[in-house]
């Protein structure tokens, strides 16, 4: 009789373990998928920038420095993405966003450029890509929060320890320019 009870308890524990383990796998996959989405959008942004530079070159002949800034920031972001470190990618993307913001501020002074159909289409693509990056980041961070919470709380943390589940890293872009208020000088 007691043998049966012991067997029942063991089976029950095994079932709970399997359930928790599968839950963790599902959450980890969701984090991976969410990251893949960010990756796709970052790549798209990097691909759009050479087109943008090519389009504006003819109009902004006196703004070499601004354009070089963007090109340099893009190169940094591309190599950071190849490295695959979340923290480094976030820093490089922050720098790229700052450079692009500087570029848009200067582009405001070129009404002809703003009227260019090609430029407007590119600007829409870049705006949308930027939105997609931030929406994907939103979704990724939500997934990471869920997954990390499961990795830290009882009882799933025991399963996480045995199964070798590591916590995922949040993706926070630190963009100083985003918070800075533009100053007007006279």
């Amino acid at each position: 009789m007691s043998g049966w009870i012991a067997l029942g308890v063991v089976v029950l524990l095994a079932l709970i373990f399997i359930g928790l383990y599968n839950g963790l796998v599902r959450m980890r996959n969701e984090v991976k998928n969410a990251w893949a989405q960010i990756d796709v959008q970052l790549k798209r942004r990097h691909d759009l920038i050479p087109n943008l530079i090519e389009t504006v070159k003819g109009y902004m002949t006196h703004e070499r420095e601004v354009l070089e800034n963007v090109t340099r920031a893009r190169a940094g972001a591309v190599s950071a993405q190849a490295g695959g470190q979340v923290g480094q990618i976030a820093a490089a993307e922050g720098a790229l966003m700052g450079a692009l913001r500087g570029f848009y501020a200067v582009a405001e002074n070129y009404p002809q450029l703003k009227a260019d159909g090609n430029f407007r289409a590119l600007q829409e693509e870049l705006t949308s890509t930027e939105n997609k990056v931030s929406f994907a980041r939103q979704f990724y961070n939500d997934s990471v929060l869920k997954y990390n919470t499961a990795c830290e709380t009882i009882p799933s943390n025991i399963v996480a320890g045995i199964g070798g589940f590591k916590k995922a890293e949040f993706f926070e872009i630190k963009d100083e320019a985003e918070r800075a208020v533009p100053k007007v000088k006279f």
Partner: peptide, 16 residues
Amino acid sequence: APQLFNLVEEMQIASG
């Protein structure tokens, strides 16, 4: 309508 498609894709990503 590229912009409309962009908006739908943005919201698809935001909502998962």
